[in-house]
Structures are given as structure tokens and as C-alpha cells.
Nucleic acid binder design. Structure first.
Length: 112
DNA sequence: ATTTTGACGACGT
DNA sequence: GACGTCGCCAAAA
């Protein structure tokens, strides 16, 4: 397949697998991909996520602190917060309060 | 080909 | 316990 087995595409696919009302961290995805130390790459991939044909729920991906670090990349609006809140996430000061509650680890949940 | 970055993470002070 | 710095990998300039 001409699927670019690139790191980016992998991240996009995993990000799309994030269930509704759930969030994950860059490190979690990176770990699932086998490159736990490449958490930064995941974030970078998200930056290019807009280049993907399919929409990537990047708003469900936050850093390990649960802070919406990437909300600035959503067009400058608080759309990211609104979306997460809409899914049941509690956001306060750009930070997910119930992060531990809605945290979704692909390497754990998605792992068969 | 080399250098810089980049939406992180862990360790150190 | 809060703040700072370094380290990681991979892609873009």
C-alpha cells in the first residue's frame, strides 16, 4: 500500500480511533506507535493533521497534563474547549479537570 | 546534506 | 512542590 507508513499517518489513524467523550495524550499515542519518546512527533503530526484528507479529532488529544496546549492551533478560537465540553469533558483554564476520567490509552484500551 | 523546530515528557534543581 | 533544563525523534526549511 502506498500508505505512507510515516509516523504522521499512524498518529492520524490512532487519533481517529479516540472514542467519543474520551481524550488521550501525545505520549500515549507515541507509546502505542512504539516510540514513546516521540511524543513531540505526535504533536507535530497533529500540526500537519489539517493536511490530511480525513478530519482528525486533534481536539481530543492533549498533553499528559491534560492541558489544551493545542487549542491555539484550532483557529485561535476556543472551539477545542467547546468540543471537549460537549463530549462531557470538564475544562477549566484550558485544562481538563476530569482528564483521568476520560483518559483513553490506545496502548491499553486499543491493545487487544 | 545540515540545521531548526515542535500541540511533549521526564528528570534535575 | 514549583520551576527549569535536557533529551527524544522525525519532518520541514
Amino acid at each position: 500500500m502506498k500508505n505512507k507508513d510515516g509516523f504522521f499517518d499512524l498518529v492520524y489513524q490512532v487519533a481517529r480511533l479516540i472514542p467519543y467523550g474520551r481524550v488521550t495524550s501525545y505520549g500515549a499515542i507515541a507509546k502505542y506507535l512504539g516510540s514513546a519518546q516521540s511524543a513531540r512527533m505526535v504533536g507535530w503530526a497533529m500540526n500537519n493533521s489539517h493536511t490530511q484528507k480525513e478530519y482528525v479529532p486533534a481536539h481530543r488529544v492533549v498533553n499528559r497534563t491534560g492541558m489544551l496546549t493545542g487549542k491555539h492551533h484550532f483557529g485561535g478560537s476556543d472551539v477545542m474547549e467547546d468540543l471537549l465540553k460537549n463530549e462531557g469533558a470538564i475544562i477549566a483554564e484550558n485544562q481538563i479537570v476530569n482528564f483521568h476520567q476520560i483518559f483513553w490509552d490506545p496502548a491499553k484500551e486499543l491493545k487487544l
